[in-house]
Design a protein around this nucleic acid. Sequence first.
DNA 1: CTGGATCCTATAGGATACTG
DNA 2: CAGTATCCTATAGGATCCAG
Lengths: 126, 126
Amino acid sequence: MEVTVQVSDPEVARLCEARQILNRVGDKWSIAVIYALDGATLRFTELRREVHGISQRMLTATLRTLERDGLVRRTVHPVVPPRVDYELTDLGNTLRGTVCTLMTWAVNHADDIAKARAEYDARPAS
Amino acid sequence: MEVTVQVSDPEVARLCEARQILNRVGDKWSIAVIYALDGATLRFTELRREVHGISQRMLTATLRTLERDGLVRRTVHPVVPPRVDYELTDLGNTLRGTVCTLMTWAVNHADDIAKARAEYDARPAS
DNA sequence: CTGGATCCTATAGGATACTG
DNA sequence: CAGTATCCTATAGGATCCAG
């Protein structure tokens, strides 16, 4: 979408801009791809194996966007068959820690969330 | 959607589950709402003012999901006019730090990303 | 192997109007 | 005030086929 919102308060504008960025980075696959590239250089197919369930189309799209945003570096080796490597850029690396923290948080609290959902769903419809 | 994927490898299964959770938490508005509730108890309308651009419908939906996931506590005061307070639960608080880090990261690197995009778009179409 | 191009569907999410 | 209900559109994203 990439909608630009005009707001008078510059602080608010910054937060809105930040939200847009996070919406991008936090889309369905980006986090998983960044997580997979944590400290590793991977080829397209390797990434596809690593990020289970991603379609070819979305892996391509996600990588393109991450590359455009300067988070991932794409290196094409002029060989046959083609070989393309993906790795995090310096900017991408500034996200590594947080993304890993996020993943760990999700893994560690999956049960809590599942439990909370079960309780919520079991509550009598007010 | 809430698709359950069957995978043999339990480690992979955990990561897939984590991804689903992050997809939820990382949806268009959740991060912003959690960020707004960072250390604060807010009413519906206050939240709406705080999270600029969110529609009433999406604020309600986001809050419901966060409540169901056990991240946000909703307290209804039986008064007229109605008063409903929202705050982070203990579980929600375990996300505060990371969410704030994320927001800060986005604010701090918005320029880098904008620059990267401009460069990418200026590149000759390979 | 690494994609691009197409097609198609489900869904997210905005706008608006109504209610206890 | 704090929602719910309805309607509608854009878009995300999967499946599939093709290509250098």
